[in-house]
Design a protein around this nucleic acid. Sequence first.
DNA 1: GGATATAGTTTACTCGATCAATCATTTAGC
DNA 2: GCTAAATGATTGATCGAGTAAACTATATCC
Lengths: 146, 146
Amino acid sequence: MRIEAFLRESPMFTVKRASRHFDRVAADAFSADGLGFMEGLLLAAIFFEAPRPIKPSHLAETFATTRGNVSHAISSLEAKGLVQRKIDPSDARGYLLALKPPGKRCALRVIAAFDRMQRGFEQKVGRAALTEALDAIRALESCKHI
Amino acid sequence: MRIEAFLRESPMFTVKRASRHFDRVAADAFSADGLGFMEGLLLAAIFFEAPRPIKPSHLAETFATTRGNVSHAISSLEAKGLVQRKIDPSDARGYLLALKPPGKRCALRVIAAFDRMQRGFEQKVGRAALTEALDAIRALESCKHI
DNA sequence: GGATATAGTTTACTCGATCAATCATTTAGC
DNA sequence: GCTAAATGATTGATCGAGTAAACTATATCC
């Protein structure tokens, strides 16, 4: 088989390449705010949850990643003055996250960018096909090992 | 909107999460050989092209990445004793890549793992749906900016 | 022959992710 | 009530992959 045909049929490579592409697109879109893709998503998540503050563990679960990873990303957002950690009054082990005013403005820009991208996607492949494709990709994630 | 609904409809996040999942699956499958996902793909690419040796620039194009990136990965594969660089007799600027015997055996394991994964995917979502989903994902890559 | 283009490497850097160790607090068991 | 175990989160070290720019060496074109 030719490698090109192999890659073309491979969900793993197709998904990986698309992921890289989206990283570049997001980095480009958020370059003014100096955010990465994941940072933008976290900011959007905190915004959507407002005014209810959100816990890091909730974010880790939502984004299917580790707490350590979220902790690092939040530290980065905090260093940029976008997010604030406050001790959770109901559980002093944990923290609650809230947007600072610049973070709120930044989140709005991020969400607007995601929305524009979403419209571009739906225009490109159609809403129904997009939904089906995402369902298929999600289903692949249940293949846990080779 | 809830962040969960936002993420569910977002191709960018769905694709990114799946990409991370595949990274973990591949790292797990290739752990005995100490290969990453991309290293495995490169090895498979060189194997598929054999006996015709392959140029790094060809790999960079095939995998939609930079030459620098390929150069790093090849160096890593070379350090593991899997791949060999030879000066291209027809163009002394370039190199030709070939598998050393351990690299060949390793490539066979890698390809077998990819094939098992592929069968798992097709069993999970069906061959037709898989093809459609990949076509949709590829189409999204033509959205160049937000 | 000299300017320019090309192949590849190198260096430094970023981002996202993971792991193990650690700390503080909460909960559970006795 | 007090200790032991579980939990929420941070830290620090490390990794893989990717990028960009500078650089070397060779090839090509006029």
